[in-house]
Design a protein around this nucleic acid. Structure first.
Lengths: 226, 226
DNA sequence: GTCTATACATTGATAGAC
DNA sequence: GTCTATCAATGTATAGAC
């Protein structure tokens, strides 16, 4: 096979494409979809609009491509974390650092995800795709935490964990001091520790007397009814 | 004093202003800041650009006004929940329903907040203002949960709680089935129950025995099903 | 205070040269 | 495959009528 010292034609093409996608991610994260001009995207990628339109049908298609490719990337990232997670509990600390890192450096990703969400919210068919994209990481984490879930639904636990972490990332981006990197691990421990608590006995809807005590008490069974 | 059957001049003016702000919230949530045209904002408010520019210096100022006024609204909302929270533990269920309601109906708010965040991320001075706006609800919740925090920092706990709830809201907006309204209360119970765990003795970084009791039994009378 | 009409800039997208 | 030149459409903001 050819050993390309220079890039082959196909490689060069792919390179351009990837640069355009990366630039689009940046600009759209910064300016929003509507605010991002194809011109700026192209020029930040080191090209011009012509190149952009030779790779994508238009701004929308570029955005949607980004949308799908990012989802795959995201899942890989989750599974990478997951693979460490199994090793031992100390991974909480590492996980915390990793997420703090995300909050601090990979800001483009999370901002882009926000924009995906906003964009999809008014487009039902896109919202479905987005939901599908989010399902994979959820089940990946669910599989992971299942052994620690006691009688709780692993998927529900997974959803809570992801929500917790994402919520912390968001807050950290606004106010780094308010969300020290250790808090990720700490909060995760709180949540998982709480799982060990009696899911049955510790009542789902404990109508206990108004008692703001230091210790969480209340062992009463109550049916779920809303 | 004049008893205005009709709106006084000042009232009419305020009414227009509020309508413009409400319309701006909608349109900006849907289209993003850059995508929202002043024309559509004005017309959705039942007015024209002229009215808009007589109330605001421009699109930016309109957005920033929205930004500040929404923060006040948000804080009120949190404190309203907080006031119930103290009453008793059953508020978890009510809180869960409330937040599910937010996720389902007040979508404009949360979308708008995402756009605020994205907009502020590249504007340091705005990011500071945003951080300040988020501080108030955080301390409000912190005061509330302080009695249940054992040795943990109430503000850290508050941050985790807010993150958890916000993360769940976000996921619910994408996939309602994945985040049933009961999960809000449930996750909150997990987290708060975990707080009771040995924060002092067993240190903050407990290398627990490789395997805590992980009963996968899942078979339980009142387990979560619905 | 609000509306109508308009000036001026910017955008997404296309066509043809290389 | 990529660039340059260009067009039609749209958007912000202003000026003057009422």
């Amino acid at each position: 096979m050819s050993v390309p010292l220079r890039l082959s034609r196909g490689q060069a093409k792919a390179r351009t494409r990837n640069r355009l996608l990366a630039a689009a991610a940046e600009v759209i994260a910064e300016q929003g979809f509507a605010g991002a001009s194809v011109d700026e995207i192209a020029s930040r990628a080191g090209h011009t609009v012509g190149a952009l339109y030779s790779h994508f049908a238009g701004k929308d298609e570029l955005f949607l491509t980004l949308f799908d490719e990012h989802a795959a990337h995201r899942l890989d990232s989750v599974e990478e974390i997951a693979s460490q997670w199994e090793e031992d509990q100390t991974v909480f600390a590492a996980l915390g650092e990793y997420l703090a890192e995300i909050a601090d450096r990979h800001t483009v990703w999370s901002t882009l995800e926000m924009e995906f969400l906003r964009y999809a919210l008014t487009r039902p068919e896109l919202l479905d795709r987005l939901a599908a994209h989010w399902r994979a990481p959820r089940t990946a984490v669910a599989r992971l935490v299942a052994p620690h879930c006691a009688a709780h639904d692993p998927v529900a636990v997974s959803t809570a964990i992801i929500g917790l972490l994402e919520g912390l990332v968001t807050q950290r981006r606004v106010d780094r001091a308010a969300v020290p990197s250790e808090l990720f691990a700490e909060a995760l421990r709180w949540l998982t520790a709480g799982l060990a608590h009696p899911p049955g006995p510790a009542a789902a809807n404990p109508p206990q007397p108004p008692r703001p005590a230091c210790r969480e008490a209340g062992r009463k069974h109550a049916g779920r009814s809303s």
